[in-house]
């Protein structure tokens, strides 16, 4: 309920924003740096970079979208959504990689 929400202060919000922005800049920098590292294969790089991107996304969703203090109903909806996205991607990949050997050309 609105009464239970903390009153908004512009100053605090600006401070929060500055922190988030700084963190996002650092994370982005780190991603770019990782991608130019010469001694890793693409698999390793992709994993690290995606991990950092997830942190980035967490910052934006958690703080800018106030997802860290959302209502249970929103969590429920998003929980199912994320589950289904993972199902879609995961099962599709399993199914396309799961062909018996010798039945696909490459």
């Amino acid at each position: 309920m609105s009464e239970s929400e903390k009153p908004v202060s512009l100053k605090d919000t600006i401070r929060l924003c500055a922190l988030v922005f700084a963190a996002v800049v650092c994370a982005t920098g780190l991603m770019i740096y990782t991608s130019f590292l010469p001694h890793y294969g693409w698999t390793a790089k992709v994993s690290i970079i995606l991990a950092i991107a997830t942190v980035n996304a967490f910052l934006v969703a958690g703080y800018l979208m106030h997802l860290l203090s959302e209502k249970k109903l929103v969590y429920t909806v998003l929980g199912f959504t994320v589950f289904f996205v993972i199902g879609l991607a995961g099962l599709t990949i399993c199914a396309t990689n799961g062909f018996p050997p010798g039945t696909v050309s490459h």
């Binding site: 998003l78 289904f84 879609l88 991607a89």
Partner: peptide, 25 residues
């Protein structure tokens, strides 16, 4: 604990997650 439009937009965003989820897949 929500007003209508807020629930509405989160539902819409859920469908957007599925849309881009499909594309990322």
């Amino acid at each position: 604990g929500l007003y209508n439009a807020k629930l509405g937009v989160w539902l819409f965003l859920a469908s957007e997650v599925m849309l881009f989820g499909g594309l990322f897949s």
